[in-house]
Design a protein around this nucleic acid. Structure first.
Lengths: 120, 120
DNA sequence: CGCGAACGTTAGCGTATACTGACGCTCAGG
DNA sequence: CCTGAGCGTCAGTATACGCTAACGTTCGCG
């Protein structure tokens, strides 16, 4: 049966909540360049391995991390596709801002058209 | 004097935490197109005006909103510049991903060069 | 097989956070 | 001056979140 104890939560929502934590962003930056093991990542911070492991779980569930197992080690790497939702949101906001500018331009153009004698 | 009761908190951090809340993103989308009054914004949701007012405060402190007063009304509008930090982070992640790809390409090219007999 | 390494998982705790309700402030009109 | 509209702010509460400590699991090696 479909568990869905949690009401799904849109992908963008999970990504944003994951990125809201500074430590998780730091982790993402770490594994953005190279593939690192959980222990190496944990060694980069001054918190317990447990905390880092939980952060890794959150990031993985948000689709921001890819996991690969090699022996007993777990290698992690940033997954840029997980940021697509965020990028869409950002572009949406940006284009909206341009909409505001365009509205002013159109109003100005309408005035000019009217002044020049009606429709083209 | 500079109050700074809160230890500063980097701008990106505040923006991310503000955007982590779905309702706040919805508010941002609302005022991305048009300038709206607090009451109009509050009317768009099924929570109390109080809650919306608090969200507006958070968004404003994060630099994501611009406030303008007209009589007793407070008009809000999205402030795209507040998203610049987030955009930088996103681009950083994306270019890092490309770094990974480039590394593979370079390794491949090195192999090919060696196989073909040294330098071009 | 047994042992240690490398992780993930669970329980518990302190703090942050999102909401409601009550109150206070400011501006326009009569 | 006084009233009402329009918002922000202040307690108070329920829930979520991040952290630690203890335990469980899987893999490699002698």
């Amino acid at each position: 049966m479909s568990p869905a104890a949690v009401p799904a939560a849109e992908p963008l929502d999970e990504a944003m909540r994951a990125l809201a934590e500074p430590r998780r962003r730091a982790i993402l930056r770490l594994v953005a360049h190279d593939e690192l093991a959980a222990g190496e990542i944990a060694a980069a911070f001054e918190v317990t391995r447990t905390a880092v492991s939980q952060h890794l779980t959150v990031l993985r569930n948000a689709g921001l991390l890819s996991e690969r197992r090699e022996g007993t080690r777990r290698l992690y790497r940033a997954r840029p596709e997980g940021l697509s939702g965020l990028r869409e949101f950002l572009d949406e906001m940006w284009s909206s801002a341009l909409d505001g500018a365009r509205r002013l331009v159109e109003a100005d153009r309408a005035d000019r058209d009217r002044a020049e004698g009606g429709r083209p």
